[in-house]
């Protein structure tokens, strides 16, 4: 059979999944491009966001939209604090220390979540409809996630292109020495970028909680793939990361279709390792 309806469904689901991954990668990329630090704990920020939405909605009975807004601001504040309290003191030390310190944060957030919420899987109990399109089943929550992710990316792009702060952020990711001479205070820009990266993680959390149960180890399932997308797209290169997200999500989705989900991830990770050897600067990066 040449035209397989299930194959098309897998491809479409891959594209939709790619949208969420792209959003997550975007936030991480922003932090990396500006501050030059890989937040190994990025997916744990997403977990914090998911828990705050769950908690606000389930415990305090707040409307979902308000929970989402609170989560975005809470995680943005967390991102700000991470930079201010943890990264800033060791900015001058070898980069690997900065990567490792966020690994400590990963343990901290994961364990604190276990302590506060136990290891149970929790969800909002939402039942979003499943769209049926020419015998293909497409989850409505994935579609919402995809569209929101796209909108957020456009908004971020506009912010970076149109505002003074956005220009400063772009400038600093191009040359962090010269930018100081232009009157930009890098410390302030670092904080803004960290808060923005956190906010994007919060938004990612809002999109993920529509589709997945939240539990303390959920970060482990999204973390690695997010770093790999960033590196693959060229760390700090937002457009590259955007495209890489869809490449990886297709590999996972199609690998899952032809084999099993784990093999989809295996294919994606092996692809990443091989690409690192062929193009260490990333798929779309320029060799510096």
């Amino acid at each position: 059979m040449i035209f397989d309806i299930f194959l098309v469904e897998a491809i479409i689901n891959g594209i939709l999944f790619g949208g969420v991954l792209a959003l997550l990668a975007l936030g991480l990329n922003l932090v990396f491009g500006v501050v030059d630090v890989v937040w190994i704990c990025y997916a744990e920020l997403v977990m914090v966001g998911m828990y705050s939405i769950y908690w606000g909605n389930n415990h305090f009975g707040l409307p979902l939209v308000i929970c989402v807004v609170i989560a975005i601001f809470a995680v943005a504040l967390l991102g700000f604090l991470i930079h201010f309290l943890v990264i800033r003191p060791i900015l001058g030390t070898p980069p690997i220390n900065q990567l490792l310190v966020t690994g400590g944060l990963l343990f901290f957030m994961q364990s604190l979540a276990t302590l506060l919420f136990t290891g149970d899987f929790r969800n909002l109990g939402l039942h979003l409809p499943v769209l049926e399109l020419a015998e293909m089943y497409i989850s409505f929550s994935r579609l919402i996630a995809f569209v929101t992710a796209l909108l957020a990316m456009v908004a971020l792009y506009m912010f970076l292109k149109r505002t003074y702060l956005g220009a400063a952020i772009r400038a600093i990711s191009q040359d962090r020495e010269v930018v100081v001479l232009m009157g930009v205070n890098p410390q302030r820009v670092y904080l803004v970028a960290s808060a923005l990266g956190g906010g994007l993680a919060g938004l990612g959390a809002a999109l993920l909680i529509l589709q997945y149960d939240v539990h303390p180890l959920i970060g482990i399932s999204f973390g690695p793939i997010t770093f790999m997308i960033c590196v693959l797209g060229g760390l700090g290169n937002m457009i590259g990361g955007f495209i890489a997200a869809f490449v990886m999500s297709q590999l996972i989705s199609l690998g899952g279709f032809f084999l099993e989900t784990e093999w989809g991830y295996v294919i994606a990770f092996v692809f990443f390792i091989i690409m690192m050897f062929i193009r260490p600067q990333g798929l779309f990066g320029n060799r510096s």
Binding site: G104, L105, L106, F107, F108, M109, Q110, S111, L112, A113, T114, L115, L116, P216
Partner: peptide, 8 residues
């Protein structure tokens, strides 16, 4: 999770 929290 307490051990992990302290450890982190």
């Amino acid at each position: 999770g307490l051990d992990g929290t302290i450890y982190g």
